[in-house]
Nucleic acid binder design. Structure first.
Lengths: 395, 395
DNA sequence: CCAGTTTGTTTAATCGATAGACAAACTATT
DNA sequence: AATAGTTTGTCTATCGATTAAACAAACTGG
């Protein structure tokens, strides 16, 4: 049944508009709101009064006069409540506490020694509980918990499959909700990252973007029209398993020649095993950071390998460009640390291969939130949900 | 500036709801509308009166009683106006006249002998003019013209690039608008086809689908959330130029190993040239229909070639499945005629290669509108635009 | 033939937005 | 210092759309 219109709907719409205007332009006066929104001055006054009663807005005092009575400036009360965002990685948990603007207030980073299910869950609970305790007093308290997970997540918050965690059909949302009695949302890591970069990072003010999370595997989060695209069943964007070599290597997913077999951190590390340097000293741990340092020290072999990974990344990105015609592609997650070595090859390949009408108006950027995109994105979903719930209860 | 809410907005919303309810469920009574929409009976009466004044709805007389006063049944006046849809093909023009429900009323199919620009335009004008003259009298007349073109079309109706027509930067929308003084929209052929199949064909009642137009090249139209996805600049979905062999053949687009080099009609015909039969009789024209007949007559070589094309189609479709997680993929345009030979290979490849969570809930279908998807889709855009304009002018 | 049901209109009340009047607070000019 | 003009935010009367409820008309079934 569709929602029909009545006066409550009007008020809800206009209250949202006023609230969003304040959030995006504070400090701002009632008169300015009236002017920018075209709402009547009286209407604005009345709605602002409601928002002040809701504790979401407050008056900061008189502002500068522009030749008449001084305006009363309004501020968004960004500490009316707090949200928690979690990046549940393969061997770490990053938990952040943010205010209602999405600004990080506190964070906890834990390395997972024991990756048994019970141990991971208990570490997760521990870090969330600590942040809840550390959260400043506020009228609304903790408004929700958002969690990003490296795997396929169904809409209601069940992790269907997370190979690197060894999880299958884990109703994470329910488990966490039960423990903390708070609204919980669970997302795919790349989707959360896309939301994070879209709201706070390199993708601010961009309506259509694709966030490519290059870690052990490759995941993508697709923002269309300022909204995350979810697909029919809630799990879209597995472009890491797009074929770029139809008769290529076999992939665990059952397909052949998947992109992430050629352009991910895992692909890089496999390739790197064949380099001559490895045999030299076998006691060291040859991880991504080691190779980054080697490249920095001028190791040609390693640098060539980074270039190659960049080229393969470029090939998959070209497909994304031709398919989605986005304004922006953001490369994030661990492999983004190799920006210095992969940026040029990526751009060269996309420049040479993408359709001219598409590449002309498109940019490629690297994550500007670094390791935080996923956790901040997850937290922001809780904030968004809180606001939209609030707006429904306009009473 | 955002649209703020007032009583006019409410009325607009509710009028749309009532109108849509009538369109989708006619014949229907005022009482039934009130029940299904949850709008008050009085409100429904008032809005229906407006719609009757607008000539969009009319009373058909008393319906069956269900134990009380007999209801007055309402019908959507689907002949209150007409729309024109054009499929501007490489060597043909298909023009259809539809009523406001999108039902075809008349159609003209012209084969293009001379493909010079002026000749194409004059043939186009001719066929549109004929249909306008043949359209029955109606209170609203022709509400708009929609045109589907095999090329990249910018949002305002300029054909940026249509290689098979030899067009570059043709402001088709303006040219046609000038001639007929009617609203004109221009679309990419695959996008129009997607809209057509979504509204009237195999994709009815499906929120998320991808229409794959397999002709000389491969184009895709993407319906997300019942809406055509357009990309940042209005031209998305060039998945025909997705790479499936990163070191494959060179493509005219500048890339290598594009999907359409392996799975389109052109790719098939190129391959077919190498078959032994061709040398046998060189006076015949070896086009797709010839090979379809050969396959039907049991020619193993040709059948094997269709199987191969099906397999390559399957590889690209797998990428679409993993990327978009659609409910449905519809294969249309000329190559869909080979359904009998390519259907099994396609399904086998997707079954074996797509991610399990995605393929489980996804179907593959072939166009059910045949050659009409593009023209009907283009016409329907005009109808949709007409309705939404009308709703804005709620007086 | 009458009681009960269904349909669609009418009426009174409610609620939110708007235009415009207004008072308060301020600046600039003389 | 006085005054004119401007800006801000509130208040009031009015408008318009929805709703609940009353109502009349039309119909069914026992």
């Amino acid at each position: 049944m569709r929602i029909t219109g009545d006066q409550y709907l009007i008020k809800k719409i206009n209250k949202s508009i006023v609230f969003d205007t304040i959030r995006q332009n504070h400090p701002i006066s009632r008169a300015q709101i009236s002017e920018t929104t075209n709402l009547n001055k009286g209407t604005v006054s009345s709605l602002v009064k409601d928002l002040i009663d809701d504790n979401l807005v407050y008056e900061i005092g008189p502002g500068e006069s522009s030749g008449g009575r001084r305006p009363v400036m309004l501020l968004f009360n960004h500490v009316a409540g707090f949200a928690i965002g979690v990046d549940l990685g393969v061997n770490y948990i990053l938990t952040v506490l943010t205010d209602l603007e999405g600004n990080p207030v506190e964070e906890i980073r834990t390395t997972l020694e024991n990756i048994s299910f019970d141990s991971v869950i208990s570490t997760l609970f521990q870090s969330i509980r600590t942040l809840i305790e550390r959260a400043p007093d506020s009228p609304r308290g903790i408004v929700g918990i958002g969690i990003g997970v490296p795997g396929i997540v169904e809409e209601k918050g069940t992790v269907l499959f997370a190979p690197n965690l060894g999880w299958k059909n884990v109703n994470l949302s329910e488990i966490v909700k039960k423990e903390f009695q708070l609204p919980v949302t669970v997302h795919n890591e790349a989707n959360a990252g896309a939301i994070g970069e879209h709201l706070f990072g390199a993708g601010k003010d961009t309506k259509n973007l694709v966030y490519v999370s290059v870690g052990i595997g490759i995941g993508t989060g697709i923002i269309i029209n300022n909204d995350l695209y979810k697909g029919a069943l809630g799990f879209s964007g597995e472009m890491g398993h797009s074929v770029i070599e139809s008769h290529g290597k076999k992939c665990r997913c059952g397909n052949r020649g998947c992109w992430e077999l050629y352009a991910s951190e895992r692909a890089f590390l496999e390739q790197a095993k064949t380099l001559s340097i490895d045999s030299a000293d076998s006691t060291e741990e040859f991880n991504l950071d080691w190779y980054l340092q080697a490249a920095n020290e001028g190791n040609d072999e390693v640098i060539r390998l980074f270039h190659q990974a960049g080229e393969y990344l470029g090939i998959g990105l070209t497909n994304i460009v031709n398919t989605f015609n986005p304004e922006l592609i953001i490369i994030g997650n661990r492999f983004a640390k190799a920006e210095k070595w992969i940026s040029q090859p990526i751009r060269r390949i996309v420049e040479n291969r993408a359709l001219p009408y598409h590449r002309g108006h498109m940019k490629i950027a690297f994550s500007s939130l670094g390791a935080h995109s996923c956790a901040l994105g997850a937290a922001s979903v809780s904030i968004t949900n809180f606001f939209s719930d609030m707006k429904i209860s306009v009473e």
